[in-house]
């Protein structure tokens, strides 16, 4: 084997591994009854997704995916699970739960098959001539230039979400006892 062939093989193996990690984590998140396992599966899936972003030439996005999703969102969900002392989902031996699981599995698999057929059947347009390389520098210029308004709006939304979360979570709490 020439070095190029070995390179291609390794790259394809890494891609397959990352795709498998993403889907395996997603399955864990969807199937586990224990919420801790669910959130762990979500973190696993996000790490695989960050690897896929690297393949798509978006290293900044991959880092943000790990920083924001794995580092912040998953940890916050874990905190909430521990704070609310949630008992895990009761084992679904009753008939209604089984029916729900079967129905949602059927719906989801029909959705997946339809999307798969659509993706296979579509001929995509020819790639447009790139205006920029998609490097981190271009991304920074775009975020503070063309997408500046959306960027600022997102920060307002985040601020409002923090305030709203504080108000909602504090409401109904006993007044301090001191």
């Amino acid at each position: 084997m020439t070095p190029q062939e070995i390179n291609a093989l390794l790259s394809a193996a890494c891609f397959a591994g990352l795709a498998g990690l993403t889907l395996l984590g997603a399955l864990l998140a969807a199937l586990c009854r224990r919420l801790i396992y669910s959130v762990s599966g979500l973190a696993l899936s996000f790490i695989g997704l960050a690897g896929l972003y690297l393949y798509l030439n978006a290293p900044f996005l991959a880092l943000m995916q790990i920083l924001v999703y794995v580092g912040a969102v998953c940890i916050v969900i874990l905190f909430a699970i521990m704070l609310a002392d949630t008992q895990d989902e009761q084992s679904g031996r009753d008939r209604r739960a089984t029916l729900t699981a079967i129905a949602s599995f059927l719906a989801a698999s029909m959705l997946a098959v339809a999307l798969f057929l659509m993706i296979r059947g579509t001929t995509w347009m020819a790639p447009a001539a790139p205006q920029n390389t998609g490097s981190l520098q271009d991304l920074g210029h775009a975020l503070l230039g063309r997408f500046g308004f959306a960027f600022e709006l997102i920060s307002v939304v985040l601020l409002l979400a923090i305030l709203g979360a504080l108000v909602v979570a504090r409401n109904g709490r006993d007044t301090p006892r001191d």
Partner: peptide
């Protein structure tokens, strides 16, 4: 597939 698994 991610979307379908999430929906499920």
């Amino acid at each position: 597939l991610l979307f379908a698994i999430g929906f499920f």
